[in-house]
């Protein structure tokens, strides 16, 4: 029981998710349908995959703004190179591009000491430019139908993409909570100096997290392109903001040292459920934005009120 109370006060976003589910179940007969739920998971998976990596990076005390552009580059490569390399080859190149951008972000931030916000802001602008040069502002279509078939495929009635998201969420949770790397994520984000003096190699550690988020952004982009059977150069615009919103909704602090995958999952689901439910109720999508913006501030207010350590700010 204590654990449940603890979870609720630490994860106010799950209360919101719960309220949303109850509300939409009563207002729309279609909402509670299994197929609709699979749909929500599918819609959540794009932002969700990136958010997993963003949770690591943000607890670490960093941020990555280049994920939207990385997603577009990986998707464009994975679709655009198919005629030359085949599906597997093109997808591999797409994933590698994400790893490479992540590594570059990480190395620059580590070696120059320039704030990750600035480094990845530069990458966000630069990589998007790269996408436009590579695609010549054209959308690419996957001519091999096997590619989009994968995006539409299901296993036990659940979309494969949603299953991938669920699997990686569980993995990320376990890694963050029960491995050395996960523990060090908190230590480095909580107090970089203390972590360094305790023998943690802070630079390589942060680099690894940037590589992780680069990979996940690329994966997310490729999976998104399988859903559409195509890629466009404008794919993933503003996704960095949605990802950060989801992670912050989940209780991860911008200052680092605090956060969880469970919270992030809550944040991701909150956004997806709200969008899906409002859509079922035929509310124009602009209203969703207003509500999401308000919810973001309200949830953080609750978080500040109830989960701040006692004695601080008294």
């Amino acid at each position: 029981m204590n654990r449940i109370i603890n979870l609720i006060t630490r994860q106010p976003i799950w209360i919101f998710v719960f309220i949303c589910i109850v509300f939409f179940s009563f207002s729309s007969p279609y909402f509670l349908d299994i197929r609709n739920f699979s749909n929500i998971l599918l819609q959540a998976s794009t932002i969700g995959l990136i958010a997993l990596g963003m949770t690591f990076v943000m607890i670490n005390g960093n941020i990555d703004l280049s994920v939207g552009a990385t997603l577009a580059l990986a998707a464009s490569l994975a679709v655009g190179l198919q005629p030359q390399l085949g599906i597997m080859g093109a997808v591999l190149v797409g994933l590698l591009s994400g790893i490479l951008i992540g590594a570059l972000n990480g190395i620059i931030a580590w070696k120059t000491g320039v704030d990750a916000f600035i480094v990845t802001l530069g990458a966000m602008i630069g990589v998007r430019g790269l996408v436009f040069i590579y695609t010549e502002e054209q959308a690419f279509y996957a001519y091999d139908l096997a590619y989009s078939d994968f995006g539409a495929s299901s296993l036990f009635g659940i979309p494969v993409l949603a299953l991938i998201f669920i699997f990686l969420t569980i993995t990320a949770h376990l890694v963050l909570k029960y491995t050395i790397h996960g523990r060090n994520v908190f230590a480095v984000g909580g107090n970089r100096v203390a972590a360094k003096e305790a023998g943690i190699r802070v630079g390589p550690h942060m680099l690894l997290n940037f590589i992780l988020i680069g990979f996940l952004a690329a994966l997310s982009g490729i999976l998104l392109s399988t859903q559409m059977g195509a890629s466009t150069p404008n794919l993933g615009r503003n996704y960095e903001l949605w990802t950060i919103t989801a992670v912050v909704l989940g209780g991860t602090r911008l200052t680092g040292g605090f956060g969880s995958i469970i919270g992030t999952l809550g944040g991701v689901l909150a956004i997806a459920i709200l969008r899906n439910g409002m859509n079922l109720l035929q509310v124009p999508s602009f209203y969703v934005l207003i509500i999401l913006g308000s919810i973001l501030i309200i949830v953080l207010f609750i978080d500040k009120r109830f989960s701040e350590p006692k004695g601080v700010g008294a």
Binding site: T179, I180, R183, N184, F186, A187, G190, N191, V193, A194, A195, E197, A198, G199, I200, G257, F258, P309
Partner: peptide, 23 residues
């Protein structure tokens, strides 16, 4: 500033410098 990660628990701080031994 240097010794503790204040937001982490007593246990986590205790094993911070040799976490490898506990894996």
């Amino acid at each position: 500033e240097q010794g503790l990660v204040l937001g982490m628990s007593c246990k986590d701080n205790t094993t911070l410098a040799n976490i490898r031994k506990f894996t």
